[in-house]
Amino acid sequence: MTQPVSPPRDDTPKVSPQAEPSPWRAVVARADVRTLSLLGVLAALILIGGITKPDEFLDTRNLQLVLTQASVIGVVTVGMTFVIISGGIDLSVGAIVALASVWATTVATQDFGFVGILFTAVLVGVGCGLVNGVLIAYGAMVPFIATLAMLASARGLALQITDGKTQVVTVDGILDLGERDSYVLGIPPLVMVFAVVTIIGWLVLNRTTFGRRTVAVGGNAEAARLAGIDVRRQRLYLYLLSGLCCGIAAFLLIILSGSGQNTNGNLYELDAIAAAIIGGTLLTGGRGTIVGSVLGVLIFTTITNIFALNNLQSDVQQIAKGAIIVAAVLVQRRTANTT
């Protein structure tokens, strides 16, 4: 652009205020439509599950299982959603979960009992997030590359620690949390943790300056910088947050499986990204919701469960997941274009 008064080079179609009397309402309505459509998909899946396997699918234990399985990946997805909204990506979440889960279950760590395991899992997660964040924010590395490197090294380190063996947890307090006795009003503790993380995530994204800055950095990093936001520090915090979520998820996984393995969290990065995307988070940053991501997680977990109950192999599941991602993005592009 060489001329100041020449027309704005406009990527988004411009709508005059007169043509659309209350565009904000339309945006809100559209967000609701998105949430509703995700809820609709989930309801349809429950219906399919209920019809194909009425006794097994709707069984309380099965529903508890679905929610428990969703909890681990769900916590990871909340962190991932923040990172993607900021315009970044974290490919290392699965590897961090693996590393945190094995580090927290070594014989030496288990000596410190419940608190030792929890503390270690969280600390390893935050530590990995710190490395990611420093490389990306202050080392000016592309998030894709930095977290890909973290993925490789964290997995390698996890393998080195375990030597490929399963580390069985012997701490009673941990194992108890996986038992039915610990359920409160039929809700497993893992699910409660997931719920708390979700609520906190929602509050942080929608009601705090941290959330606002995250959206600003993802929407237009240059504008955020020129508005006086410390973009680099914000990026660092975001990868720390993602690492923290991975640490919590690792702890949940230890409770769930009663062990730590270097193969834990395999392909979590893809599941978390996919859940965020079908939940309406823009991969280019600047827009996304926690509710959408959590619904995305529930949809994926429910599909997996229904397929397993119907004895369909995981290859079919993968194909179905792929199809859902494509369909969700196409639908979102359409709703985005119509306004």
Binding site: D10, T12, V215, A216, G219, N220, E222, A223, A224, L226
Partner: peptide
């Protein structure tokens, strides 16, 4: 600063 490229440098267009 009110920068030259308003859309690219100043505004959060989704907000």
């Amino acid at each position: 600063l009110a920068p030259e490229e308003r859309k690219a440098q100043a505004l959060l267009m989704l907000e």
